[in-house]
Amino acid sequence: MAAVITAPPRAPEKRSRRRGGAAWARRLVFVIAGLYFLVPLYAAFRFAISTPDGGISGAVFAGIPAQEGFLDAITLTVRLAVISLVITLVLVVPTAVWVHLRMPRLRRVLEGVTLLPIVVPPVVLIIGVLEVAPPALKGTPDLLALVYVVLALPFAYRALDSGLQAIPLRTLVEASRSLGAGWGRTLVSVVLPNLRSALLAAVVLTVAMVFGEYTMASLDQYETFPVWIVVFQQANARVSVAVSLLALLGTWALLWLISLVDRRRPSPEDA
């Protein structure tokens, strides 16, 4: 009994000393992590702005759009991104809503199916695709967009699935239907507005995936954005490094956009 009574006064002092040591350990972890992640960024920046004659100039960034092949690569990548985005959304949104409403037991199965593209490495999938694709499709880069849909499925489905989990879908749909709206109208004016941030996440992740995808594009021999970076490196490595940095900034901006919309959305308690 006595031990129990005397123990508490000692504890806070012991703990604060321990916590003090822990704070130093934490700081050390942050410093090391910060170095590992920031030094390559700085090195790349230094490399991009240093001119061959030893000077420093930011002209390399301004000159990117004028580089040979850059605009073509961006145009092609945007086209692939738009095609795969449209197909992905048309495919995933109604399916996810339908499964949540009518076949909740199928959620598990669908989750498993959307994991399959992760089980099949892209380098393996592209062999099979190039083998079975009809020649008419093989001759166009749009084949890549059709396959990118499969790669985008896991991200897009997961984003929508958690978005649907978070809203009272059944109530919303029943209310809309009993007020006389058809299925199409219910989907467009009731369900989708409630899924805004999930949709945005699906869009951003799909676009980011298409803009970063190198394996399939290079093996199918189309010069998309990442393929161009590698090809152009032979002509001018500084430009390739500068573009790589901008790609990182672009990813950052896109993800920041999602978090911004996410935070602005009022939680159910606020409403």
Binding site: P40, A43, E213, A237
Partner: peptide, 17 residues
């Protein structure tokens, strides 16, 4: 950001480092 930032640009960051 970093987890989504793989592939080609990453390779170039490290060539400079």
């Amino acid at each position: 950001v970093f987890a989504n930032f793989g592939g080609v640009p990453l390779a170039f960051l490290f060539v400079a480092t």
